Simulated assay, not measured.
Amino acid sequence: MTDQARALPGGLAGYATRAEALLPPATAAYFLRGAGREETCRANLRDLEQIRIWPRALAPLAGGHTQRTLLGRRLDVPMLIAPMAYLPVLDAEGEAGVAAAATAQGVGMCLSAQAGQPMETVREAGTACQWMQLYWQAGRAPTMALAERAARAGFAALVLTVDAPVNGIRDAEIASGFTLPAGIRAVNLDGLPRPQFAPLKDGESVLFDRVAHVLPDWEDVAWFCANAPLPVLLKGLLHPADAAQAVVAGAAGVIVSNHGGRVLDGAPSAISALPGVVAQVCGAVPVLMDGGIRRGADVFRALALGASAVLIGRPVCHGLAVAGALGVSHVLRLLRDELEVTMALAGCRTLEDISPACVQPPTLSGSCSSEG
């Protein structure tokens, strides 16, 4: 065992504690904190913890596995690394190191458009990096140009994030004065046009009048889903009505997410919104979830309430900050091991055995019915 491996934390909680201690306060504020009073960040964690898992005795487990096919691609475990910006701030290996770790562990990866490394470099580092996330650019043409570049680089799907038309007010990040280090930028957006804002007229609002005209609407999304070179998933949906509209618009999947509590503080937790979205979509497309996943038992809880897979964010940041790609690989392995142990103790041999009957959910305060 190498000295580096010997020094790794023994568990996921240890990675979180050590990352908080190692990171400069401003960096920790950007990657690990949320918007406003962080009510939604806390709800993501609290609502998952309140879901009880039924132990089941003497269930047959021979031949069990955690494999799942998603949009035609097999995953060894129903987890993907969530898109996160500027990972070279945490470790020089950055997104390429994370892609290598994901590939080693059979976990999927969704690369952020605000990655600090070229998408082609990241793809070369790890073939598990199959999905490319993007925001709507300054119009249809530049958005499609980014999508076409992703297709040429070998990506298999696009993830259009729709829950952040404007940035959330991140108190901790503002107070810390976080700025990107010199030399780190969203390199994949180089050369793309930036939004051009017309001068304000009397009585106009900077937010509602200048910004709104460069943002997409459902018609733009439907156009993109119909014309993009790859299947498009929509990320950042909580309300069932929005999920239904995503299916109508041609989305190949939806990702229930509140942006890790980094945009609208006070939004429902992702896990509380998940059942309503699953019911509304009714199997038309896969439903994924992110927000608050910290342990393998949390993955199980999300699957039990209808998620096809989950996306992992902050635990990956913890691993990368503590030990680079090796740390990420270890974190992913720990999550998989914990999921397998949870499945075994809950009497579930395969993912298909995991159902709402496996858990005892409380009445989650943020839950949203499929109506209205």
Rank of each mutant, 00 (worst) to 15 (best):
L326R: 13
L320M: 09
G11F: 05
N44E: 10
E20W: 07
A43C: 01
T179C: 14
Y86L: 12
L22S: 05
V285R: 01
A59Y: 04
P199A: 10
E95I: 01
A96M: 10
H65R: 13
R18K: 10
G291E: 06
L351Y: 06
A252V: 12
A57P: 02
D353W: 02
A85R: 11
L45A: 13
S257E: 01
A182L: 12
P193L: 03
L23A: 03
I354C: 04
C225I: 05
V89E: 04
A35Y: 06
A16K: 10
I51V: 15
V247S: 07
L146R: 02
D217Q: 08
F224V: 04
G94H: 01
D217V: 03
A57I: 13
A99C: 03
V359E: 08
C225G: 07
V328S: 02
R294N: 00
P60W: 06
A198C: 00
V248S: 13
P78W: 09
V310T: 09
P118S: 04
A28H: 15
A145G: 13
P83H: 10
G34I: 07
T103W: 00
E39T: 14
G203D: 03
R301P: 04
L192N: 12
I53L: 15
G292V: 05
P118L: 05
L32E: 14
S205E: 08
E219D: 15
G11Y: 07
R42Q: 14
P24D: 14
A325G: 09
Y135N: 15
C282S: 15
E38F: 05
A307T: 06
A151R: 13
I184Q: 01
T103Q: 12
L320E: 07
R295Q: 13
P88W: 00
Q360P: 00
R294W: 00
A151N: 01
V278M: 11
V328R: 01
G306Y: 05
S365G: 15
A100C: 09
V299M: 03
L215V: 06
G327P: 09
P240G: 05
G261Q: 12
R123Q: 11
L345K: 11
N258Y: 05
S369M: 03
L70V: 15
S329F: 01
A309N: 06
P118E: 08
L48E: 03
M119T: 06
L12M: 06
A92K: 13
D337T: 12
G106Y: 03
E204W: 03
E93C: 07
D290G: 02
V299G: 02
A5Y: 02
P275G: 07
P229C: 11
P286N: 12
P165T: 11
L32Q: 12
A325E: 14
D91A: 14
E120M: 08
E20A: 15
R294S: 06
A182E: 15
C110P: 01
P240A: 04
V211P: 02
Q67Y: 05
A198Y: 00
G291A: 10
R74W: 00
C368K: 11
G203S: 04
M119F: 13
R56Q: 15
A21L: 14
L238P: 06
G168V: 08
